[in-house]
Design a binder for these strands. Structure first.
Length: 454
RNA sequence: GGUGACGUGGCGGAAUGGUUACGCAGCGGAUUGCAAAUCCGUCUAUCCCGGUUCGAUUCCGGGCGUCACCUCCA
């Protein structure tokens, strides 16, 4: 029952002891809502969903507060709105709904609180005023900038030396900056760009301040875990640390930093120019969400993940086997396998947890008492699997490709009759005909069932 | 140029100073009318070179290789 997590800040695995065991607090950077979530957006959602599930088991569901924000103010959103000729609210509302649907398909539970940036502009302005008052920020030319040299510790989280970074950096230095490293807290908006009134004129927040303001608003100055993708460690998280600790006091803010590794596709960085960009939405058209989720968990969260079609197929095959065992099995938290739990308690070692699941499945197939229950409880409660019935799982088809289940059953009945008459030629003909349509039959002790294969 | 991660069997992917990870795929067998599913069995591995050690895949050094980041991409 000792949870250990790797803390990016100290670069070592540590025992997890919450500030307040009665209220464990976690903040994870959520999406900027301007387009469909891609598979890289989904990784932190799934990873920290497993962590949230584990924390709820360890400390009790009511004693965990999981916050994941929606960033609904951003220049990419503005650009998209301009391109489509619609208000940004239309872009953000639509994209947020898509995000929720996609993450739900991956069995990721909603966070306890999902704050939106546009609902926290006042808090951002207040924090910026504090930073100015404390000498960590200054207004210049309609902008407000965080003055990096005012914080000697800057760069500690990401392990970067600001001076060395400048050597090879391709930074265009705006004339109003006192130091090349200074970053924007607030910037002016013209009439055509969304903005809010502020002490520095009509404008909008810079990129990093929203997470500082929202974590403070919902979790307080200090909280336990801050998560996100490793690509965010610099500059986003570094700047969050700068903003929050300079505004709220040294020693505040996140105590454990967790970063998931990069996501690649077919061995390469995923990018639109590479042509290997994958949205969750389009992947869900090819495989059930649970297969994508299990695939995502086969690699430890801190390792780079290579997304492949083969990997999806493998995850599907594994779930085929598990679904055969857990269907109709009732299980509760007490049934969770110690091995699965222990694996997750060791810095969220999901590959090891999955190996334990395989052992349980094997034991269940051999008839070991309790194994199927343990498999279901571990998968359902901790890993976030088995949300479907076995029938739903095996009959899954891509959206829009409905099968005529009644007709399939009729064929199966005809085949059963043929088999009874020992007319195996006819029985095999029916089976082959169904197989050619992607319907695979299985004659089990309880009768004939079928599954859709691709 | 700076920083970081990583190199395990056909593939995916853990762990570990000394004893088969696990899965997918393959192969042999059982079962089945034949299949499917399941069971039993089985093949293949720790990038290279040094060092420490009784012993290294694991620790240290060097090399080679891959990937990523260095201001708005999770």
């Amino acid at each position: 029952m000792t949870l250990r997590i790797y803390n990016s800040r100290t670069r070592e695995k540590q025992d997890f002891t919450p500030l307040d065991p009665g209220q464990v607090r976690m903040y994870v950077c959520g999406p900027t809502v301007y387009d469909y979530a891609h598979i890289g957006n989904a990784r932190p959602v799934v990873v920290f969903d497993v962590l949230a599930r584990l924390l709820r088991l360890e400390f009790g569901a009511k004693h965990v507060t999981y916050v994941r924000n929606i960033t609904d103010v951003d220049d990419k959103i503005n650009a998209r709105a301009r391109a489509e000729g619609v208000p940004i609210s239309e872009i953000t509302a639509r994209t947020t709904a898509q995000f929720h649907a996609d993450m739900a398909a991956l069995n990721a539970l909603p966070p306890d609180i999902e704050p939106r940036a546009t609902a926290h502009i006042a808090q951002m302005i207040a924090m910026i005023e504090t930073l100015i008052a404390r000498g960590h920020a200054y207004a210049a030319d309609g902008h407000v900038l965080f003055h990096v040299p005012s914080m000697p510790e800057y760069g500690r989280l990401s392990g970067r030396d600001p001076k060395e970074m400048l050597a090879g950096a391709r930074v265009e230095v705006a004339p109003y900056k006192r130091d090349e490293m200074d970053f924007v807290l607030w910037k002016p908006s013209d009439a055509a760009t969304p903005g809010w009134d502020s002490p520095w004129g009509y404008g909008r927040p810079g990129w990093h301040i929203e997470c500082s303001a929202m974590s403070f608003a919902h979790l307080g100055a200090s909280f336990d875990i801050h998560g996100g993708g490793i690509d965010l460690i610099f500059p986003h998280h570094e700047n969050e640390v700068a903003q929050s600790t300079c505004a709220n006091g040294a020693g505040t803010f996140a105590r454990y930093w967790m970063h998931n590794g990069y996501l690649m596709v077919d061995g390469r960085k995923m990018s639109k120019s590479e042509g290997n960009f994958r949205t969750v939405h389009e992947l869900l058209a090819k495989a059930p969400g649970e297969a994508l989720r299990l695939q995502m968990l086969t690699t430890h969260y801190r390792q780079p993940f290579d997304w492949t079609q083969t990997g999806t197929q493998e995850a599907k095959t594994v779930l085929d086997a598990w679904y055969r065992l857990v269907d109709g099995v009732k299980a509760e938290a007490a049934d969770i396998a110690a091995g699965v739990r222990a694996a997750l308690e060791d810095d969220l070692n999901t590959p090891l947890a999955i190996a334990e699941m395989h052992r349980l499945a094997h034991a269940a197939n051999q008839g070991a008492p309790g194994a199927a229950k343990a498999l279901r409880a571990s998968g359902e409660i901790l890993l976030g699997l088995f949300a479907l019935t076995a029938e739903q799982w095996f009959h899954w088809r891509p959206p829009g490709q409905k099968l005529d289940e009644t007709e399939i059953q009729e064929q199966i009945d005809l085949r059963i009759a043929a088999r009874k008459a020992r007319n195996f030629a006819e029985a095999d003909r029916i089976r082959d005909a169904l197989a050619s349509r992607g319907i695979q039959l299985e004659d089990g002790p309880g009768g004939t069932t079928w599954k859709a294969v691709s």
